[in-house]
Amino acid sequence: MQLLIEAIGFGIAAGAVIALGAVGFSLQFGISSILNITYGSLMTLAAYIGLFLIDLGVNPWVTLAIAGVVVGIASVAFHRWLLAPLARRGTRPFAIVIVTVSAGVILQYVILAVAGPETQSYGDQGGQTFHFLGTTLGASQVAIVGLAVVLMLALHLLLTQTTLGRAMRATSSNRILAQSCGIDTDRMSDVAWLLSGWLCGATGVALAITTAGFDFSIGQVFLIPMIAAAVLGGVGQPYGAMVGGLVVGLASELAAAYSNPAYREVVAFGILIAILLIRPRGLFGAAWATRRLMA
């Protein structure tokens, strides 16, 4: 029973990081219909920006915000000057995915060339420990869970309570109709890529804090569970991605607790497939989201 409680606590902590990244990934897809695999390498970039700043003495949480801004701007540039023109020229969605895979590989190897293959670390950022309900979590884990909750709430309010959010949702639903209503859909895309890029960068730094050690492959390694969380929640559905992240995190930790930990991800992804068999569009997916993914 003790192990179960601990696994749930650790699962929530792990799920919070996955959810942060999954929400950004899902938001990008929702607004632009682009499955951006470069997202993983951009997380890696953020982790190394974080390392540079932390080595200069910058507070890790300030670093997280700064890395988020840098990656957010890079994401906007990447979309506006590479992906959007390709889409406008009628490039097939599958080809655009390959472009993002290629760009991700290039970025990853540029990072490798500059930073080297060695394992890097921000040092021990765990901080004070908190014991509650039979679980022990470090201050950084609690902070990341809190950050995830706050950001999700902020995103929810943005999307539902502001004109900007409503314009973004309109763009996501029907770009042509949104344009005919006077919405600057290009600007909405920029905002969505900035926001999702910020989440991507923040997740990269959060991952590096959580793992304590990382190298140039960190983003690619964790992109897979994030995509899984996004698919589980219903691609294009930020709220679904939040829940998907938690499910993936919990499933992985529970698998590690009650089976051979070597297969923790196998169990987690097995659960994911089982859920998708029951709910093909994901936990919160609308029919259009699935259709767009399959297009």
Binding site: L3, E6, F10, T210, T211, S252, A256, P261, A262
Partner: peptide, 20 residues
């Protein structure tokens, strides 16, 4: 005796099993 995957975000559960 545990076999663990490389480069996970956390090994808290595995650590808890070892400490126990």
């Amino acid at each position: 005796q545990l076999t663990i995957p490389a480069d996970a975000a956390s090994y808290s559960v595995e650590v808890a099993r070892v400490i126990a």
